[in-house]
């Protein structure tokens, strides 16, 4: 009896929850179709997608995201590996550092950059466009540290890093070979999960890009939102689809990884 009532309660919670989460999406989608007065149309999407500004900013943000992911992995994966293998006593310190971006708001971090790397500082990174791009990527790597480190570290814990490394060493492999041929293939799905999560976070990021005055997708979204009616809705749907695609890919890779591990 109690089981049935609790099940009914659970259904009600799920349905109300779904309504709250799906209604804005549905409303946004419908709104995005209303650009033409008399009929529903995809005009808003057409306008947005053919806007050279959209293409430019989206392309720029995609490039930044890819650079962030690559440099993030190059930075985090060997560190996580090294910590597990040689310096476990540093684990707490590194973990704490990777969690700091959750404590220090993005706006504070970028404010710090502006103070430390302004054009009159010892390292004037903000003085040139390319070096500002570099700073933006660095800021995104910082933002994604919590996600990237966690997923890679979890992936590494699931395999026997020490055993694999020692086996490879005894077979004569060098450090490069161990990382690329032994460790990496085993944590590929974890790394990919982290990568897609990073992509989802970075692609529409606003604060960093805006304050560093870079022509990224986030500031573009904000600009359109301030000046247009229907296009923002279309953009929101596009952004949602991008996020959803990233998450979907994470699921796919996570499942593949699990299946492979089970088969092994």
């Amino acid at each position: 009896m109690t089981r049935t009532t609790s099940r009914i309660g659970a259904w009600i919670a799920m349905i109300v929850g779904s309504l709250y989460f799906l209604l804005p999406l549905a409303a946004t989608f419908l709104f995005s179709l209303k650009m033409r007065r008399d009929a529903l149309s995809f005009d808003a999407y057409k306008v947005v997608l053919t806007d050279p500004q959209f293409q430019a900013t989206f392309g720029y943000s995609t490039l930044m995201a890819v650079l962030t992911i690559v440099s993030g992995i190059v930075l985090v994966a060997p560190t996580a590996f090294w910590i597990q293998l040689k310096l476990p006593r540093l684990r707490a310190v590194v973990e704490f550092i990777t969690l700091l971006p959750l404590v220090i708001p993005a706006i504070v971090i970028v404010f710090g950059y502006l103070k430390m790397y302004n054009s009159s500082a010892w390292l004037p990174l903000t003085a040139h466009e390319r070096s500002t791009d570099f700073l933006l990527v660095a800021s995104y790597v910082t933002l994604s540290l919590p996600y990237l480190y966690r997923s890679i570290d979890t992936g590494l814990r699931a395999v026997d890093v020490r055993g694999l490394t020692e086996a490879a060493q005894s077979l004569g492999a060098g450090w490069g070979g161990i990382l690329l041929k032994v460790i990496l293939p085993n944590v590929k799905s974890a790394i990919l999960s982290g990568a897609f999560l990073t992509f989802a976070v970075v692609i529409g990021e606003f604060t960093m890009a805006s304050l560093l005055s870079r022509p990224a997708f986030g500031p573009y979204l904000q600009l359109i939102g301030a000046n247009r009616a229907y296009e923002p809705a279309a953009l929101a749907i596009i952004a949602f689809l991008v996020t959803w695609a990233s998450m979907g890919l994470i699921q796919v890779f996570a499942r593949n990884g699990r299946a492979k591990r089970k088969a092994a």
Partner: peptide, 9 residues
């Protein structure tokens, strides 16, 4: 930003 748009819409 996109979330803000969704709620505005």
């Amino acid at each position: 930003v996109p979330l803000a748009f969704a709620f505005l819409a």
